[in-house]
Structures are given as structure tokens and as C-alpha cells.
Deep mutational scan, measured.
Amino acid sequence: NQASVVANQLIPISTHLTLVMMRSEVVTPVGIPAEDIPRLVSMQVNRAVPLGTTLMPDMVKGYA
């Protein structure tokens, strides 16, 4: 099972991601792979992401 990136807190819209905001967890459905966490740092979310939500490629500007 592959770990995905999950929000560690509420991430407001247009926030630049930091390591503190993300954790890796095995979830269904599978989202952005956990090994991409370093790549996600300083990218922006294009919507509010609630605590515990799996980050999907379409939620992060410039990821997909």
C-alpha cells in the first residue's frame, strides 16, 4: 500500500505548503504520493483543505 499526502491541519486557500502542514498516511482513495512531499513545499493549494483530507493533484497549483 502506497502512502499519500494528507493535510495535518486546515490549509486555507492559496496557502504555500510547508512540511508541518502535511503527513503521509495510507488512505483510500490514493492521492499525491508521500514521496512527493519535498516537491510540494512552497506550492500553493487552490482550495481550502480540511484537516485529514488527502491531497489530490488538482488541489495543488502547478503539481499536475
Rank of each mutant, 00 (worst) to 15 (best):
A48K: 12
L55R: 01
R23P: 01
L17C: 03
L17R: 00
P50F: 07
V49L: 08
E25K: 15
E35P: 08
V5L: 03
E25H: 08
I32Y: 02
S14Y: 15
T18Q: 14
D36Y: 13
I11W: 01
I13H: 14
D36T: 08
T28M: 14
Y63A: 03
T28R: 13
I11N: 00
P12S: 08
K61S: 12
V5R: 01
E35G: 15
N8Q: 12
T15I: 05
D58Q: 12
T53F: 11
T53C: 07
L40Y: 02
V27R: 14
Q9K: 12
V41D: 03
K61V: 15
D36R: 09
R23H: 05
M21Y: 05
N46A: 14
T18K: 11
T54K: 04
M56S: 06
L40I: 12
T54V: 09
K61H: 14
P33A: 11
V30N: 14
T54Q: 03
M21F: 04
V60T: 02
P12K: 11
I32A: 02
I32T: 01
P33L: 08
A34Q: 07
E35V: 15
A3E: 12
V20W: 13
L40K: 00
V20S: 11
T54L: 05
T18V: 06
S14D: 13
R39S: 10
A3F: 09
E35C: 08
A3I: 07
V41N: 03
Q44H: 05
S42I: 03
G31Q: 00
G31C: 03
S4Y: 03
Q44Y: 05
S14K: 13
L19S: 09
S14H: 15
G52Y: 04
A64E: 12
Q44A: 07
E35D: 11
R23T: 08
G62F: 09
G62I: 04
M56H: 05
P29D: 06
N8I: 05
V6S: 01
I32W: 00
L17M: 06
A64N: 15
V41H: 03
V6K: 03
M56I: 07
Q2M: 13
N1Y: 10
S4G: 04
V45S: 05
P29E: 06
V5K: 02
V30H: 12
V41A: 05
V60Q: 00
A3K: 12
G31F: 02
A7H: 02
A7D: 01
L10N: 14
A3R: 14
Q2W: 10
M43T: 04
P33Q: 05
P38W: 15
N8M: 07
Y63T: 03
V6P: 00
M59H: 11
L10I: 11
I37R: 07
S24V: 11
Y63C: 04
T28I: 15
T54P: 07
G62Y: 08
S14A: 14
V6L: 07
A3Q: 10
V20A: 15
V41R: 05
A64M: 14
V30Y: 15
Q2G: 12
S14C: 07
Q2C: 09
R23N: 07
D36K: 11
L40R: 01
A48V: 15
V60F: 05
V45F: 02
P33R: 09
N1E: 14
P50N: 10
V27K: 08
P38N: 11
G31D: 01
L19N: 09
V27T: 12
V41Y: 03
H16T: 13
A48L: 14
G62A: 07
N46I: 10
S14V: 04
V26K: 09
T54A: 07
T53M: 12
Q9R: 10
I11E: 00
V27P: 01
S14Q: 11
M22R: 00
P33D: 06
I11R: 02
G62Q: 07
I11C: 02
R39H: 12
A3S: 13
S24A: 12
V6E: 02
D36F: 10
G52K: 02
M56G: 04
V45C: 05
S4W: 03
I32L: 05
G62L: 08
V20Q: 11
S24N: 06
P57T: 05
Q2Y: 14
A3V: 08
M21S: 03
T28D: 12
P38G: 13
A34E: 08
K61G: 08
T28S: 14
V41C: 05
I37P: 01
A64K: 05
H16S: 15
G62V: 04
I13N: 13
V27Q: 04
V45E: 02
S4V: 02
R23Q: 05
V27Y: 03
S14L: 14
V20Y: 11
Y63D: 03
L51R: 14
M43P: 00
S42L: 09
M43A: 08
A64T: 15
H16I: 13
P12G: 06
P50A: 12
V30T: 14
T15M: 09
L51Q: 13
Q44I: 09
V6Y: 02
P12E: 09
T28W: 14
D58A: 11
M59P: 01
R39G: 11
N46M: 13
S24Q: 08
N8C: 07
Q44T: 14
A48D: 15
L40M: 06
A34R: 06
T28E: 15
M56Q: 14
A3M: 13
M59G: 03
P38H: 11
R47P: 03
L19H: 10
E35S: 15
A7E: 01
R39V: 13
H16R: 15
M59L: 05
T28Q: 15
M22P: 00
V26F: 09
N1I: 14
S14F: 15
M59E: 02
P12M: 06
P50V: 07
M22D: 01
S4D: 03
K61T: 15
A34Y: 06
T53G: 11
V60I: 15
L19V: 07
E25P: 01
L55H: 01
P38D: 10
M59Q: 04
R47T: 13
M21A: 03
T15E: 09
T54W: 03
H16A: 13
R39I: 09
P57G: 07
G62N: 08
K61C: 06
I11D: 00
G31T: 01
T15Y: 11
M22F: 05
V5M: 02
N1R: 08
V30A: 13
S24L: 07
P50R: 12
P57F: 07
V30E: 09
V45L: 08
V30D: 07
A7G: 02
D36I: 05
L51E: 15
L55G: 03
K61R: 15
I13D: 14
T18R: 10
V6C: 06
M56L: 10
Q44V: 15
M56K: 10
P33T: 06
S24F: 05
L19A: 15
V49H: 02
V45N: 02
L55A: 01
L55C: 03
V41W: 03
L55F: 08
P38R: 08
L10A: 15
L55M: 09
V20M: 13
M22W: 03
M22L: 14
I11M: 03
A64V: 12
N46F: 06
P38C: 07
S14E: 15
M43S: 06
L19W: 14
M56W: 05
V60K: 00
Q9N: 06
G52Q: 02
L55E: 01
T15F: 07
G62W: 08
V45I: 08
I11K: 01
T54D: 02
M43G: 02
V60C: 01
V26C: 08
R47K: 15
V20E: 13
T28L: 13
P29S: 04
H16Y: 15
M43R: 09
I13A: 15
A48R: 14
A7V: 06
L19I: 11
V30R: 14
T18P: 00
I13K: 13
D58E: 13
T18A: 09
E35A: 13
V20F: 15
V5C: 06
V45M: 06
V60H: 02
L51W: 10
M59T: 06
I37Y: 02
S4T: 04
V30F: 07
Q2E: 12
G31P: 00
G62T: 06
M43V: 04
L40E: 00
E35N: 14
Y63N: 03
T15R: 06
T28C: 08
R23S: 06
V30G: 11
V49T: 04
G31K: 01
I37C: 05
R39P: 02
G52I: 03
T15C: 06
Y63G: 04
E25Y: 09
P29A: 04
A34P: 06
P50K: 10
L19E: 13
M21Q: 04
T18M: 10
M21C: 04
P29K: 06
P12R: 08
K61P: 13
I13L: 14
V5P: 00
V60D: 01
A7W: 03
I32D: 00
S24P: 12
L17Q: 00
P12F: 04
G62H: 12
A64W: 09
T54H: 02
V41F: 04
L10E: 12
N8A: 15
V20H: 12
I11P: 02
Q44F: 05
M22Q: 00
L51K: 12
V27H: 04
M56T: 12
